[in-house]
């Protein structure tokens, strides 16, 4: 037992240490790509009417007139001091900009994950249980659609149906324009609850529904398939047959025997899908005009806001490393056969 936990500690520490070179390589790549990418950020800061002198002056203020390697070194120095720089456009600190957008994406991603887990697991399980009926075929089609469909398109369909045709749910944004939430933790839902702003809370939650379904459905495809095949496999296990022979009810067999045993790999899959979810959230946020990390990234790429793009990528990379690390650790604790 103790050898296991010390091994685990070693594993965690080495994984964390590995993040540093990974970040360094990533940052260098992003730095180069952004500069190789055509388009001068100055043209996005200064309007076309502004004269050449303004452009030159802005370029100087941003340090864009310095040699690339000098910009690179000073940027890296900043990063290791924990300073991601300032946005070219808003001049605001990149950390604080991210701090305002990240919680929203975290909220969306969490809800999306729940929807994905719910949809994927319930449909996958039921389809495995009824694999020989029409539902099995239907579910195969459904999960394939979920896996391959354009998020954009699906989000818009939902929007048109539920927000415009039937008007049962809001179409865009995270809060009605007449409401506001006092910022405490940055997570709008939590802040609304803390401040007792029920109206804002209800409105906010209602606004999360369609985006969460969009994102959740997108990710559910994978989970659905995996659950389906795992449950199918589990239902053929000898212990399921033995349980049936004891007269255990089918419902119990399905959930306690087949599903529960299938879930461990599904949980890992959720972790592995984290990156996919981030990319899905970019599109979802665009469709639903949600001011999260995704739309921030899109906007800052469009505007060639180098420090902000770099900052977002750093945060994404950190998030993905942390999440996969956590999943690995959880997995190690759940499954005693894994020795780290």
């Amino acid at each position: 037992m103790s050898s296991k936990s010390s091994g685990l500690l070693f594993y965690i520490v080495s994984r964390i240490l590995l993040i540093i070179p990974m970040l360094l390589i990533l940052l260098t790549l992003i730095f180069i790509i952004l500069r190789v990418l055509p388009g001068d950020p100055v043209y996005f800061i200064v309007s076309p009417q502004a004269g050449e002198h303004i452009i030159e002056q802005t370029r100087h203020e941003l340090g864009l007139d310095r040699p690339i390697w000098e910009q690179y070194v000073s940027y890296l120095m900043g990063v290791f001091r924990g300073d991601l720089g300032k946005s070219y456009i808003t001049k605001d600190n990149v950390w604080s900009i991210i701090g305002r957008h990240l919680p929203i994406t975290i909220e969306l991603a969490t809800c999306g994950l729940f929807v994905a887990a719910f949809l994927g697991i319930s449909f996958g399980t039921f389809a495995a249980y009824k694999s020989k009926s029409w539902f099995g075929v239907f579910n195969t089609i459904l999960s394939t659609i979920a896996y391959t469909m354009p998020v954009f398109w699906f989000g818009m369909i939902l929007q048109i149906l539920f927000a415009i045709q039937f008007r049962v749910l809001p179409a865009t944004g995270i809060l009605d324009t007449s409401l506001s939430i006092t910022r405490i933790t940055g997570l709008p839902a939590l802040d609304a609850l803390i401040t007792g702003n029920m109206r804002a809370f209800v409105d906010h939650v209602a606004r999360l529904i369609l985006p969460s379904i969009t994102l959740g459905f997108f990710i559910s495809g994978n989970i659905n398939r995996m659950t389906h095949s795992n449950v199918l496999k589990a239902l053929n296990e000898d212990y399921v047959r033995a349980a049936r022979a004891r007269g255990i009810k089918e419902r119990v067999i399905l959930f306690k025997y087949a599903l529960k045993n299938s879930l461990i790999p599904v949980i890992t899959l959720l972790g592995m899908n984290f990156a996919r979810m981030l990319s899905g959230s970019v599109l979802t946020e665009t469709v639903f005009s949600i001011p999260g990390m995704g739309s921030l990234l899109v906007n800052s790429i469009f505007r060639r806001d180098y420090p902000l793009v770099q900052g977002i990528i750093v945060v994404y990379a950190l998030l993905i490393s942390i999440v996969t690390l956590i999943i690995d650790i959880i997995y190690a604790y759940i499954d005693p056969r894994i020795r780290l």
């Binding site: 000898d238 212990y239 047959r241 033995a242 049936r244 022979a245």
Partner: peptide, 18 residues
């Protein structure tokens, strides 16, 4: 099943829910 007629299977290693 189990109550009137019970069954014991060949491979005990995989006959219990892990």
């Amino acid at each position: 099943r189990g109550k009137e007629i019970a069954m014991i299977f060949q491979n005990p290693d995989v006959s219990l829910n892990p």
